[in-house]
Design a protein around this nucleic acid. Structure first.
Length: 591
RNA sequence: GGUCGCAUAGCUCAGCUGGAUAGAGCACCUGCCUUCUAAGCAGGCGGUCCUAGGUUCGAAUCCUAGUGCGAUCACCA
């Protein structure tokens, strides 16, 4: 089926041909601004290149031609060089009728056998998740869902940074001060391990201070603090496979994973497959050796291995240390290759990682290309801005972080407060209420973060709590709940046989907005931007509320109008649901 | 210093491949609950779109230079 624009484009071209014996390459359309009559606007200016004359006169001539030749066109006016076209209601009504019962409206069935793997979260295992991770997780999850909705097959994954000096720090502090402590219901494993990471830092700082008091320079003291040397020794033992160290490492990592799982579940995100750095860095080393043979890499006299990227405008990049151990990028090379081995249908990958690593991913993708991997051209770094506090950067060691679990709880508490003030849920059970508070609190948090363009940094002020009014998640959820209330009262059987009625302005506006949704999903997928979906949904909801408050739905003058309005409301609520679903936001039946 | 990103109302953000008088929310001010949920609706106030040049019929949008903020340029991750 041709879209309205495609149809009009053909006719405008025909008009130019008939009136001026000229050919147009394309026609520029835009939605008609509210202050003018009409639905679609043709911009005449670009045609002046092909057709000489006064744009107003040309617009009038094209308008008249369309009015004479196209049934859908029922009127026009020209303002300056803008031809505003009025479209017959029947077009909008027919469109509405063709989609009104689609439960998956806006979604496309899987059209592509080639899958995309989306990596997100990817935490270190030495501390709990904080607000920065929350943005990462929400973005990664949402982009995955958007890609799926746009017809792609998707695998969600993460890379877990489960090895390295940072984990040894927590392990060492636990050995020294832990006294056999284990996670409890009040203290999740990730929190417990995080506490020891902080304890390590405190002990380390104290040692530095006393070394400086003994006359060492700060630089020396930082290098020589015994507890740091001990942590480094521990890392060596881990790499050598020391039984006790590895056992403790396994235990504490498992505590962290269990803790993370609770957080992920709370947020409502999931993964299809997991990768651990401790498993992939060796494969990375293999491919470094391989690349050395094929000349992609070069070895320095001290034994370190490098990739020369100066011809590509970048620097020389180290891929293996002089002592033969792996650096960060070594395991990223290994992980990427491992993933394609495990999932041969994957044709591309998306890495959800903060913009502080822009350079790293540029280098990684280039190296993989040089190693000759076909799929390397389909790698995308979903780079996003940092979440900063008014006091600046969040720092785990200094305790200036907004903890993910705490934040979710606070959002839920706020939702509870507001709900109680409004008092609409008196007949709900405690369990139902709590479930709803969480839905709304999370909705507020997720929308707050996802509505912002990923590229931009977010300034989060814990003192100014996230809004529940206006352009927010709860506002959208509220609109959904309102519609459900109407649908409960309406007789839904009648909705199946909708007949054409004269459209109210608000109704037409709603249908136009609904018509955009499938395209919004496609755009969001191409641009990897949940913000597009969020902002679209807000516009749709605003249009609906305006309709709702200005036009009576159940109290319509005729049954025909009532049925149509109920059906229209139903499609709006389905669209809200589908839009929010790809944002990871749930909808409530009441609120 | 090199490279990359960002800059729009007091605050938080939209503004699609250049198009009409730059839009929302919050905050502030007016109205609207005996009628479908007022977490709402209708309206008001509020702008040198960082600056200066350029491209064009037309620039918040594209180009160049500059300013400010952030990131990065590690045998850290």
């Amino acid at each position: 089926m041709m879209t309205l624009q495609e149809t009009l484009e053909l006719h405008v071209k025909a008009a130019i041909k008939a009136l001026f014996q000229s050919d147009l390459d394309s026609v520029e359309f835009q939605a008609t601004r509210k202050e003018f009559a009409g639905d679609v606007t043709v911009v005449v200016f670009p045609m002046l290149r092909v057709v000489k004359g006064n744009p107003v006169v040309i617009g009038e001539q094209i308008g008249q031609y369309l009015l004479d030749h196209v049934d859908l066109v029922k009127g026009f006016n020209v303002v300056k060089g803008f031809l505003n076209i009025e479209i017959a209601d029947s077009y909008y009504f027919n469109f509405f009728k063709s989609v009104k019962d689609k439960v998956n409206y806006g979604y496309v069935d899987q059209t592509d056998d080639e899958a995309i793997m989306v990596e997100y979260s990817s935490p270190n295992t030495n501390k709990p998740l904080h607000l920065g991770h929350v943005r990462n997780v929400l973005l990664g999850y949402s982009v995955s869902e958007i890609l799926k909705a746009s017809g792609k097959k998707v695998y969600k994954t993460q890379i877990i940074n489960d090895r390295g000096i940072h984990i040894c720090k927590s392990m060492l502090a636990y050995k020294k001060f832990g006294d056999g402590e284990t996670p409890t219901e009040d203290l999740k494993g990730d929190k417990l391990v995080g506490n020891y990471y902080v304890k390590f830092d405190q002990a380390y700082k104290a040692e530095i201070a006393s070394l400086i008091a003994e006359g060492q320079s700060e630089e020396e003291a930082k290098k020589n603090a015994p507890i740091l040397l001990e942590a480094q020794e521990m890392l060596r033992k881990w790499e050598a496979g020391d039984k006790d160290v590895v056992a403790l490492w396994n235990t504490m990592n498992q505590w962290v994973y269990d803790g993370f799982d609770i957080t992920y579940k709370n947020i409502g995100v999931d993964f299809d497959t997991y990768y651990y750095e401790s498993n992939t860095y060796l494969l990375g080393k293999e491919f470094v050796a391989e690349g050395l043979k094929t000349g992609v890499f070069e070895q320095d006299a001290d034994g370190s291995v490098w990739c020369d990227l100066t011809e590509d405008g970048l620097d020389r990049k180290i891929v293996l240390r002089a002592d033969g151990t792996a650096v960060y990028i070594t395991q990223d090379i290994g992980t990427a290759i491992q993933r394609i081995k495990d999932y041969p249908d994957v044709g591309g990958m998306v890495y959800t990682v903060g913009n502080e690593q822009d350079y790293h991913f540029k280098v990684l993708f280039l190296i993989l290309k040089k190693l000759g991997f076909e799929w390397a051209k389909n790698l995308f770094h979903l780079s996003y801005g940092m979440v900063d506090l008014p006091s600046g950067k969040m720092k785990s060691r200094e305790g200036t972080v907004v903890d993910a679990d705490d934040l979710i709880q606070e959002m839920s508490d706020t939702a509870e407060e507001i709900s109680k003030e409004l008092g609409k849920l008196e007949d709900y059970s405690e369990d139902d209420k709590n479930e709803l508070y969480k839905k709304i609190g999370l909705g507020a948090l997720k929308y707050y973060i996802l509505k912002v363009d990923p590229k931009k940094r977010i300034l989060f002020d814990p003192k100014e709590s996230i809004d529940f009014q206006g352009n927010t998640g709860p506002f959208i959820q509220y609109t959904y709940a309102r519609i459900q209330s109407i649908l409960r009262k309406a007789n839904l059987k009648d909705v199946h046989n909708v007949v054409e009625v004269t459209l109210h302005d608000k109704e037409k506006q709603l249908i136009k907005q609904l018509e955009l949704f499938p395209e919004v999903i496609q755009n969001a997928a191409e641009q990897h931007s949940p913000a597009l979906v969020a902002n679209y949904t807000y516009d749709l909801v605003k249009d609906f509320n305006s309709f709702y408050q200005n036009v009576s739905i159940l109290g319509a003058d005729s049954d025909e109008e009532k049925n149509f309005r109920v059906a229209l409301s139903k499609l709006v609520s389905q669209t809200i649901k589908n839009a929010l679903q790809v944002l990871g936001i749930e909808v409530p039946e009441r609120m």
